[in-house]
Amino acid sequence: MSFSILTKNELARVMGSRQCCKMAELLALIKMDGSLQVSGRQMSLNILNHNAAVARKVFKLVKELFGMQAEVLVKKKVRLRKNNVYWVRIPPQEGLRDMLVRLGLQRFDGSLREDLLQDMVSRNCCRRAYLRGAFLGGGSVNSPGGNYHMEIITSKGRHAADLCRLMQKFGLTAKISRRKAWFVVYLKDSEQIVECLNLMGAHSALLEFENTRIFKGMRNQVNRLVNCETANLNKTVDASLRQIESIAQVARVIGIDKLPLGLREIAELRLSFPDASLKELGEMANPPLGKSGVNHRLRKLDQMAEKLRAGDMPPGF
């Protein structure tokens, strides 16, 4: 089961304690996946979802808040092995128009509202409930083991803008992109996804997200340290091989015993300890040398070898 489905199943069990919050969440679910059917003077409302737990929540909210008769229909999708589709259908009945007006979906004159009635989300608790309903209606969140991405997809550009503004009220820097005929409100920052999960009430999903994110961060840090250590080790080995070749060149032409005492000592140490670092070579010298002192002498040996390869005899030899 995907992380997104686990999150939705958890949020489907979260019920607001206040009626205003339940109203806001039901409004979001209807605006995300609701369709109004009008035939003459009769009107019915259908609310679609692909999650059985979410469909049960819609059914419960409709019954609890408005006492409306409703039914849940299940349609099996065979093509491409899709999941079931659940329809919460509110058939024509007295009180349906009043329900739509109270939710801010319809005006008193019967015309439909495209904008989000701000009275429905005037409180922070209602804004959180609305975001929860919107996510249940058309949201998804990637597993934290991969790329960080949370999105809510809606067919209305105005609704996408309303969702974006709601998130911004909580300090979430949501953005909107277009995907064919859909508008996508998304977050990509892991900290903000964690905050959004917290706002919606998905606390178990949040803990799993955080645990995976911390483990992923530690693994990445270890990989960076290992890569850095490997790079440093490769540089040390390459430098050591080059220095040994230079010392061998000097030994063939001049002879190590003919070198000044300081150069002879460092040359013999390098030949005896090819894997040692500059610091370790310096500690073995008598008297001990710093890294810069060892590096200076080895560079002089490199320069001497280069001149010998070019056919030039260093001064004094």
Rank of each mutant, 00 (worst) to 15 (best):
L187W: 01
L271Y: 11
S155C: 10
K82Y: 13
R41D: 05
P92F: 03
F209L: 09
D115T: 08
M120N: 11
M304H: 04
E283I: 12
K8M: 09
M23P: 02
L103A: 02
V58P: 03
L45K: 01
A267T: 05
S204W: 15
F66K: 01
E229A: 15
T173H: 10
G201S: 02
L233S: 06
K22H: 12
N232K: 11
R270D: 08
R309M: 10
M1V: 13
G104Q: 08
R123M: 06
V72R: 02
A205D: 03
V194F: 03
A160C: 13
Q37M: 15
K156E: 11
E265Q: 11
N83D: 15
N124P: 14
C196I: 06
Y148C: 02
V250M: 10
L117S: 13
E64Y: 08
S140F: 06
V237I: 12
H203W: 12
V38R: 11
A12N: 02
R264E: 05
S39P: 10
L172Y: 15
V222P: 13
S177C: 14
S277D: 15
R224I: 10
S240V: 15
G67Q: 04
S122M: 07
L11V: 08
Y86V: 01
K175A: 09
L11W: 02
V226S: 07
P260M: 09
T154Y: 12
I176H: 04
G40R: 05
G157V: 06
G171R: 06
R224P: 04
G139P: 13
S44N: 01
V185H: 00
S277M: 05
N147S: 12
P91C: 06
D109S: 08
A231S: 11
A202Y: 01
I152W: 01
D98S: 04
N220H: 15
R13H: 10
G217S: 09
L199M: 15
R81F: 13
T7S: 08
H296C: 08
A205R: 09
V88N: 00
D33R: 11
T236W: 07
D238H: 13
S277F: 03
P287D: 10
I176M: 07
P144Q: 05
P287C: 08
A12T: 01
Q42F: 14
V237D: 10
N286H: 07
M68W: 00
I266Q: 10
N142C: 12
N83P: 14
L259E: 01
L117V: 14
R56A: 05
G40P: 07
V74N: 14
F108V: 10
G293F: 01
M284R: 13
A161I: 11
V184I: 07
G110L: 11
K57Y: 00
D275K: 09
G40D: 05
N211V: 07
G311Q: 12
A160W: 00
S143Q: 04
E229D: 08
C126V: 11
N46V: 02
R102S: 00
G316W: 01
E229Y: 14
T212W: 10
K169S: 07
Q42W: 14
K22V: 01
